[in-house]
Amino acid sequence: MSGTADRSKQTFSDVFIPPCTNDTGSAIGTAVDAMRHFTGNAKIKWNVYSGQPFTLDEIDGTGIEVHPLDYNQVASALLGDKVIGWVQGNCEIGPRALGNRSILAAPFSKATHERLNRIKNRKSFRPIAPVCLEEDVALHFDLARPSPYIPLFQKVLDSRLEAVTHVDGTARAQTVSREQNPPLFQLLTSFKAKSGVGVLCNTSLNFNGTGFINRASDLLTYARAAGLDGFVINDAFYLLKTAPLAA
């Protein structure tokens, strides 16, 4: 039974749907079950951003401008229809990009939706998920609660968000708070200051059929092959020179 179905029946006051419902989650669950068996304790501390660290190996800097990370600069690039790879800290566990290994873009244009699916080598009808400031989510989506792991579908209320609105009028939004993911929160805040909307397109940063990109040289190879305009790695913004920076 889906999380959406459980929530609509209101059988429980709340339903937790884990973000790593694949082999990663199975391994964690098995380990917790063994810990409970041997110690009687089934409580663990975990974080969805507990995957592998990013390797900053040597890259070919030909045709690249490197800028210190300025959130306003990246927000301007996004508002100028640039598509940006976004790397912060360790990668996510589980199959979903939740803001540490993401491809980000402005949410306003159907052309952006189509471009992202071309970059991802996916069918044109495939949906693109939005990421939204938690405090603003009810302004844009039929969602009145945090949803940091994007398990739930909801109606899109804001007609401007064409890039993240599926053909049935829904989206699967991720909400972001300052505490949950400070860098992504700051970027969304900067984008809202420039556009009036604290929402971005968010899809996973990975080669087709593989896991998250976790090495700078691989990221550059992907950016050039897939047609990204640039990428952020922690505190640096790498811009491909063929993609002029938005003012």
Score class of each variant (00 low, 15 high):
T4W: 07
A5K: 13
S8A: 15
Q10S: 13
D14K: 10
F16E: 08
P18A: 11
P18I: 09
C20R: 00
A31M: 12
V32Y: 02
H37G: 11
K43Y: 11
I44F: 08
Y49Q: 05
G51C: 05
L56Y: 03
I59N: 01
P68C: 10
P68N: 14
L69D: 03
L69T: 03
D70K: 09
V74H: 00
A77C: 14
W86K: 02
N90D: 11
N90Q: 14
L98M: 13
N100F: 04
S102M: 02
S109G: 06
S109M: 07
K110E: 14
T112K: 01
R118M: 15
K120M: 12
N121H: 14
S124P: 10
I128K: 00
V137N: 01
A138L: 02
D142K: 08
L143S: 02
A144K: 12
P148E: 08
F153Y: 10
L157H: 04
D158I: 03
S159H: 08
A163M: 05
V164G: 01
V167E: 12
T170F: 06
A171I: 01
A171C: 13
S177R: 02
E179W: 03
Q180F: 13
L184M: 14
Q186P: 01
T189L: 11
G196H: 04
G211E: 06
R215F: 03
L219S: 03
L219R: 04
A225H: 13
A236H: 09
L240K: 04
L240N: 03
A243F: 09
A247V: 14
A247L: 14
